[in-house]
Design a protein around this nucleic acid. Structure first.
Length: 581
RNA sequence: GCACCCGUAGCUCAGCUGGAUAGAGUACCUGACUACGAAUCAGGGGGUCAGAGGUUCGAAUCCUCUCGGGUGCACCA
């Protein structure tokens, strides 16, 4: 149930009636007619712009349309008052029975209140993290992981059929580097002195892998040439790294449905098939790219390559799919991977990248557009990088200085809930300042505690009420006499609850899970505020001594708040707590 | 040089397919625990929405340009 779409439907029906009665000309387009919460509560409960939107095409004065529409609307039980205001807004005051109904419905549906059918089961693939399997995840990956996971949760809640996916970049040269680095650790495990030259990974996390390798193959590879061990160690090391990454994700409560290996695309004809598909559409050709404008790379030279005509699908320049030596570029398997997603029947693809990959957006969109003949849409969400701070001072990550901050460091110290919520209190395309000490303090600056506290507070009320002998299970609360909720502040909280289903749809449509976090903050704020009103206004207290009936009504409202907080936190992957400790 | 993202209160940020007097937090000032949990609440001051044009009933929001910051720019992923 979304009250806003319900009332919008009423507005549209009324407009249609006006048309058939000759009050409006035929053939008007109602698509831009909106029903929204007004900025100022004094304006009423909802406002519609119908009169202003239609005035021009109908060649009528906004006020005349608004007056006629108002008459239609007040004929409905749900509308108590409709008045024209400002340049032609129609402000509606709705029956308080509607708001009480929201509380009932929340209790009936539980955390499913707010679930939307908007997605209509559309198959969506959300690809996120997709970090190279060359080491543990660091703070930068954390944001993409949290964002992607919350977005997937949000879309699921909005009625999409979501697949969460991780693309393992295990096919490129960086895996050779990993293998060589592991080999050095392997030699070290055999007691040799080793140095880590440039182009290898000196991180401590490979020590265990070297020892594990020793345990597995003994001294079989000691003193042997690279071509003997490279292949084997690549696989061994990649597996070890993926185990590490999977454990990192688990610590953050991120669960993937699919881990897709880039390597599985090689030698199986899949890359060839994807490029062949583009070729069949006339989008592959041999050619020479223009040198980049501006400063020329020193080693630039013209060379003929196999190119994808991505400019036909919105890219700025065509992109090479083969290197000059004839091997595939990294882009070729990416094309094949997305071709596979198209092939698996997804209607919509979402890639979550770090902002440093912004340059690939156009070419990936071009590839998907070409491969699916525009039938599969793709949206690429860029997460801006995370700037680390400690005690308000910028904090540089450096492997050598030992100040490399991993995802695990953060999660183990702060916990997955706080980490996730903090990462979601910023728009994905805005940079994020992550102050380690501030988050570690778990101070009140941290909005997650504010929301958690509201949830815990409701539970505290429920406990107290139960001790006082009030039935507080949802089944009993649903039967409460909500007529007893009549104070403006109480109805205000119910109105906030009514916004939840609408918020879910907006957040899902814009692919912006941070909106959920902000909404929860506002809801928590409204609840805290109501709670405090009870200090000076005893009749607003949830627990009314010797009046179990009234207590139940008020507790039903509080419980509904907890249910929505719980649903929202669930989307974000944050656990609602029962009590603060 | 080109592309993408960003620019909103002292600071950190929201701002709904364009909507009414631009909102929170923080900091600062004043107040509220004999009280369903003060990790909370009530009130106050604080703005050239970077700047300039344009689109229209109406622009922080859409378009163009300028300025400032970030990211990325052939055979690395």
């Amino acid at each position: 149930m979304n009250l806003f779409t319900d009332i919008r439907a009423l507005v549209i029906v009324s407009l249609e009636a006006m048309t058939s009665e000759g009050l409006l000309p035929e053939g008007l387009d109602f698509r831009n007619v909106a029903v929204e919460p007004p900025r100022d509560a004094a304006h009423g409960d909802m406002a519609t712009n119908a009169a202003m939107v239609l005035a021009k095409p109908a060649k009528m004065k906004p006020r005349d349309i608004a007056d006629a529409l108002a008459q239609k609307l007040v004929a409905d039980d749900r509308v108590e008052l409709a008045e024209v205001a400002g340049p032609g807004f129609l402000n509606l005051r709705l029956s308080s029975a509607l708001w009480r109904g929201v509380v009932i419905e929340t209790l009936n549906k539980g955390t499913a209140f707010g679930r939307s059918a908007m997605g209509q089961g559309t198959k969506v693939n959300v690809e996120y993290v997709s970090a190279n399997p060359t080491g543990p995840l660091h703070v930068g990956h954390t944001r993409g992981a949290v964002f992607g996971d919350a977005l997937a949760g949000l879309l699921d809640y909005a009625g999409y059929d979501v697949t969460r996916e991780y693309y393992i970049n295990d096919g490129g040269a960086q895996v050779d580097v990993l293998a060589r680095s592991v080999y050095l650790r392997y030699l070290e495990a055999h007691g040799q002195e080793v140095a880590f030259p440039d182009g290898t990974y000196p991180g401590d996390y490979l020590i265990d892998v070297g020892q594990a390798l020793k345990k597995k193959v003994g001294d079989a590879y000691v003193g042997k040439a690279e071509d003997v061990w490279l292949q084997d160690i690549r696989e061994f090391a990649t597996e070890a790294m993926m185990d590490l990454i999977r454990a990192d994700l688990k610590a953050l409560n991120v669960t993937m449905d699919v881990f897709y290996s880039e390597k599985s695309l090689y030698g199986t004809g899949r890359i060839e098939a994807a490029i062949g598909e583009l070729d069949a559409k006339g989008l592959i050709y041999e050619g020479t790219l223009e040198p980049p404008k501006g400063k020329l790379p020193e080693d630039w030279e013209a060379r003929e390559q196999t190119l994808f005509k991505s400019t036909d699908h919105g890219d700025d320049v065509d992109r090479p799919v083969k290197k000059s030596d004839g091997s595939w570029t990294y882009f070729a398997p990416d094309i094949a991977y997305h071709y596979d997603k198209v092939d698996r029947g997804f209607d919509h693809l979402i890639d979550v990248f770090g902002a440093d990959h912004g340059g690939y957006v156009k070419r990936m969109k071009a590839a998907v557009s070409a491969l699916s003949d525009g039938k599969v849409s793709i949206d690429i969400k860029l997460c801006q990088l995370v700037k680390l701070f400690k005690n308000g001072e910028p904090f540089k990550m450096s492997k050598r200085a030992g100040t490399f901050v991993t995802l695990r460091d953060v999660v183990e110290q702060v916990g997955p809930d706080v980490t996730r919520f903090v990462m979601l209190t910023r728009k994905n395309d805005a940079p994020l300042d992550f102050d380690f000490s501030k988050v570690l303090e778990q101070s009140k600056d941290n909005p997650v505690f504010y929301v958690q506290y509201a949830h815990a507070r409701v539970n505290s009320i429920l406990r107290k009420a139960a001790e006082a002998g009030v039935a507080v299970d949802d089944a009993s609360l649903v039967g409460a006499d909500l007529q007893l909720l009549s104070h403006e502040a109480e109805l205000g909280v119910a109105k906030k609850l009514a916004e939840w289903p609408r918020l879910v749809e907006i957040a899902a449509r814009t692919n912006e899970p941070h909106r959920v976090a902000f909404y929860l903050y506002e809801l928590a704020s409204d609840f805290h505020s109501l709670y405090h009103l009870g200090k000076n206004t005893p009749e607003l207290r949830a627990l009314q001594e010797s009046d179990a009936t009234t207590s139940q009504a008020k507790i039903a409202l509080a419980r509904a708040v907890a249910v929505v907080i719980s649903a929202g936190l669930g989307i974000l992957g944050v656990t609602p707590v029962e009590e603060m400790r």
